[in-house]
């Protein structure tokens, strides 16, 4: 993985597989403390306590094609490499929240990359899902919610190519605004 947004796409895909109806992604830069928090919260089926303990082990996976699963281990590694951390809170039948904290200034921190592309890829993955993206920089905030888009569309699918193109530009604009003219990676 070369971008944090690719890790987000990968881990949020797990939420879709876990039958979540809402996936809430938060990206929060706090320059005062040098922390970049990335939180992926879903209301999917959740994991048992035992499974949560083993899920950062690459040899734990739910997939059936082979016995390794690298999504969460790679996410965890990418955060810990910077001096940050990864935390998983999950409850069966309630949902899962994964929070990674990166040290912004660390030379080992990957750039965020294209968050808008990540959101459009997730929408393509499961049309009926509600995706929320909260993008924060030092308290300034941009919020994107697929329900707000859907409310304007009278049943036209979000995966319509024109709608996807709009969403991509809308998110890019929101992020640029929130960055306040700074080049935040």
């Amino acid at each position: 993985m070369k971008e944090i947004s690719l890790n987000i796409l990968d881990v949020a895909t797990n939420s879709v597989t876990a039958d979540a109806t809402t996936v809430d992604i938060t990206v929060d830069y706090e320059f005062a403390t040098d922390d970049l928090s990335v939180i992926i919260a879903d209301d999917g089926r959740g994991m048992s306590e035992d499974f949560v303990k083993s899920v950062t082990d690459p040899f734990t996976t739910t997939r059936t094609t082979r016995k390794v699963g690298l999504g969460i281990p790679l996410f965890k590694d990418s955060a810990e490499l910077t001096g940050g951390s990864l935390e998983i809170i999950s409850k069966l039948g309630v949902g899962t929240t994964i929070k990674a904290v990166y040290k912004i200034s660390s030379i080992d921190r990957m750039p965020m990359g294209d968050l808008a592309d990540t959101v459009t890829a997730l929408i393509g993955l499961k049309e009926s899902l509600r995706f929320i993206l909260q993008y924060k920089v030092d308290g300034r905030e941009f919020r994107f919610d697929t329900d707000e888009i859907r409310a304007q569309l009278d049943g036209i699918p979000l995966s319509n190519y024109e709608v996807l193109a709009f969403i991509k530009e809308y998110i890019e604009g929101g992020i640029n605004n929130t960055n306040g003219g700074l080049d935040i990676l």
Binding site: M1, L6, L9, D10, T13, R63, G69, L70, G71, L74, D114, D117, T118, T120, A121, G124, L125, Y161, L164, A165
Partner: peptide, 21 residues
């Protein structure tokens, strides 16, 4: 678009297909 695909660069490919279509 599993971890392997994403890590190898599937997301820009997906978006290229969507753009081209």
């Amino acid at each position: 678009m599993a971890t392997c695909g994403i890590a190898a660069g599937a997301r820009p490919v997906l978006n290229a297909f969507i753009d081209e279509v």
